[in-house]
Design a protein around this nucleic acid. Structure first.
Lengths: 208, 208
DNA sequence: GCTCCATGTTTACAGGAGAAACTTATACAG
DNA sequence: CTGTATAAGTTTCTCCTGTAAACATGGAGC
């Protein structure tokens, strides 16, 4: 049995090489002009070689998106791993980690959330996305259990949190969080507003 | 002086015809496969004709986005025009109008918010977007003046509201508000959570 | 060593963006 | 009313992309 299930013969490991090149291109080019031929060119193979590893361009993009969800999950998990944090602090840390991920990798983030309807068909991609989403759900559970968050329908809090973070991320990477519109530090400020609606008891008012 | 500044000679009004065709294509095709040549074809002119009216494809797209912001502004303004509504009700109505707009015209909505950095260079587009954003600011002002909304930095509430609505819209049109994740009516539920954080006094708890 | 087949390459084709050269018809001057 | 400049539209061309098909190659297993 070979070392990995997908090890090409000639190149050594073209599949992974293509993925690495593509991820690097996504991270470098803000312009989101992603061509399969360019990926092949930079990997040093002919423009038709990728088709031996991915059915079409979309298949590669879906794999990139899947990896993106795994990476995002890792970033968020690490951000909220400190046990000394309160749930509220963990929430802010995870949200900020997600938005930072988007800002540092806008092409990949856009790709992850630009589904073509058939995303649900790719079960691996779907699973990766659900796993990352699960981090949020578990945090909300923890918050409701220890009384930090209000005991309302968790799906409502999940929808609100997710939309808030995703909205901030999308606006940030599209350079639409201009100071003239939303002030100097819109992201922490917006998260505080949301948390005031989710948290119990003392509504942690904005700092002066 | 001619009736309008941009009246073509041969076709009659090719510029507007192209815009109309393009808007119709955006509304019809969920797939977001927008080619200039297809626009020309459906308008009944050669594929090079559009270049007499738009410098390039992006120029047409920017104009479509500008029109989109005007339309969105109209929808939102109409939704919150009823004087009998409370500020909170107006907020929900405007937010729902925005999300409905996105759902009914996902291609156009995506286009409006997929800036290519040079969006700020197009002053007409920028102005249109700022005008629509101004509706939100005025609503927040009204809410703070009459004591409905907490008297915190308005830019924070603006960022939170905008991100929430935009996030819900983006998730909705990408079919990512799956019931398994966020329940059956995630949009009103998420808006209520946010409003609980923005409103003063009685925190309008979730309905049972 | 010989053969098979996964992994490559070359070639080909349809279609898009956009530039350049050419054509047409309208507005306006005289 | 005629001639002409020019806006508006067409044809043609180049370069690019995605993708299919035919061909080449080299390592795996007999």
């Amino acid at each position: 049995m070979s070392e990995t299930t997908n090890r090409p013969y000639h190149h050594g490991d073209l599949r992974h090489a293509l993925i690495d090149t593509a991820l690097a291109m996504l991270a470098a080019d803000q312009n989101w002009t992603f061509t399969l031929r360019e990926v092949a060119r930079r990997t040093g193979v002919s423009h038709a070689a990728p088709y031996k590893h991915f059915r079409d361009k979309e298949a590669l993009l879906r794999e990139l998106a899947r990896i993106g969800f795994v990476q995002l999950g890792q970033s968020m998990a690490q951000a909220m791993s400190a046990d000394t944090f309160s749930v509220r602090e963990k929430f802010v840390a995870a949200a900020q980690a997600c938005i930072d991920f988007a800002i540092h990798n806008p092409g990949l983030y856009r790709l992850m959330f630009s589904s073509d309807a058939d995303k649900t068909i790719d079960s691996q991609l779907h699973d990766a996305a659900m796993n990352t989403f699960g981090l949020l759900l578990r945090l909300l559970e923890e918050g409701q259990r220890d009384g930090s968050f209000r005991p309302i329908a968790m799906s409502a809090q999940a929808a609100a949190s997710w939309a808030q973070v995703h909205g901030l991320a999308m606006l940030a990477i599209n350079h639409q969080l201009l100071e003239e519109k939303v002030g100097v530090a819109p992201i922490p400020a917006a998260l505080e507003v949301l948390l005031d609606g989710m948290c119990c008891g003392v509504s942690n008012q904005q700092k002066p």
